[in-house]
Design a protein around this nucleic acid. Structure first.
Lengths: 123, 123
DNA sequence: ATTATTGTATTAACAGCTTAATACAATAAT
DNA sequence: ATTATTGTATTAAGCTGTTAATACAATAAT
């Protein structure tokens, strides 16, 4: 998964989101060790300070543990990860539904549209 | 519809999005006159320059027409509005589905979740 | 013990967004 | 004709995000 960074939003927030996704989807398994700030920064082609900022936030959220001089690792608390994942999913869904309704789509319409798109993707 | 402006993204982009929604949903009907930049800025509690920036972009996209000294109005080209609306909707849906899949949800799961949420909303 | 690697902190510079205060140009309203 | 309203442009200031270059502190590796 290449790092996809656009310029329309702060980079560090995008880093946070993408690292979250990698945790949720198991790219970084529970308890696994993360690369160093410098390595992750280089891989994402951003400044170490920017990556640092993202990692600090993820630590505040409890998804990442910092071991002062031996790097960082993903938390081993599966419940915490699951909760964060569920919360994000619900936000995604409600934001999406709200916006579609603001655009004037009926709930029934929305379901139909998604249904069709999912069928398309299965092909 | 109160203006909802967060500080995590440029305000002018949020203004663009919200005005688009108002056009798509008919709050501003086709051909109708928009308030002046100054009035809209005051209503949204932003600087006139910021509102101006958003309106200029909407004009570039063809959704708004500028009448040099007598204000702006929504385009009367229903086809153009419909196309912009469809394009936005498709972006919303594909972004949403992509993110849910990155989080590790199966397509079937996603449909079920949305189905349930829509049923919830109907109550 | 020494070295390398880790996270962390600091300072400076630059760019973009936002606000503020004006000013100008065109024209609708009077 | 005059006035008011419209969009537009300019300049300055402040803030945040980003990069860059360094330095420090703690400790794992040797």
């Amino acid at each position: 998964m290449p790092w996809e960074l656009k310029s329309d939003r702060p980079i560090y927030t995008q880093l946070i989101e993408q690292i979250e996704l990698m945790i949720f989807s198991g790219v970084y398994p529970l308890g696994s060790k993360l690369p160093s700030v410098r390595d992750m920064a280089q891989e994402a082609a951003v400044n170490p300070n920017t990556m640092q900022k993202a990692l600090v936030k993820l630590e505040e959220d409890g998804l990442i543990i910092t071991h002062r001089t031996s790097g960082r690792s993903i938390t081993e608390d599966a419940r915490m990860v699951e909760m964060a994942k569920t919360k994000l999913a619900q936000e995604q869904i409600s934001d999406f539904l709200e916006k579609m309704q603001l655009m004037g789509f009926e709930q029934k319409e929305i379901l139909t549209i998604i249904d069709n798109m999912v069928k398309e993707m299965k092909k």
